[in-house]
């Protein structure tokens, strides 16, 4: 498996750390209810098909990236820097 780091180009999966769905970008505000936090930390859409997830180019440039990917076919459809996706 290879992933397109927006900074380094296509790299082997070994260089990346995986952290789950990009829902992690949408951290609730302080004081949001228990349900909002439960959804943020635990619950997942977990699609069989296109998804967006977070990877860390740990053995590369150190960028966190959001990869658009298909969980059924493993096709990789694109990637952006998490920093940009988060803004």
């Amino acid at each position: 498996m290879r992933l397109p780091c927006p900074i380094c180009g296509e790299r082997d999966r070994r260089e990346f750390y995986y952290a789950g769905h990009a829902v992690a970008l949408e951290r609730p505000q302080e004081g949001a209810g228990a349900e909002a936090w439960d959804y943020y930390v635990h619950n997942r859409d977990n699609p069989c098909g296109e998804t967006r997830d977070l990877w860390f180019h740990e053995s590369g440039c150190g960028a966190w990236i959001v990869v658009t990917r298909d969980t059924a076919s493993h096709a990789v459809l694109g990637a952006v820097l998490a920093e940009e996706a988060a803004r």
């Binding site: 992690a24 951290r27 977070l54 820097l81 998490a82 988060a86």
Partner: peptide, 14 residues
């Protein structure tokens, strides 16, 4: 280190 990069790039890029 990974956690700090996450906190900065993903949660607080500002």
């Amino acid at each position: 280190m990974r956690h700090m990069e996450f906190a900065h790039q993903v949660l607080r890029p500002d």
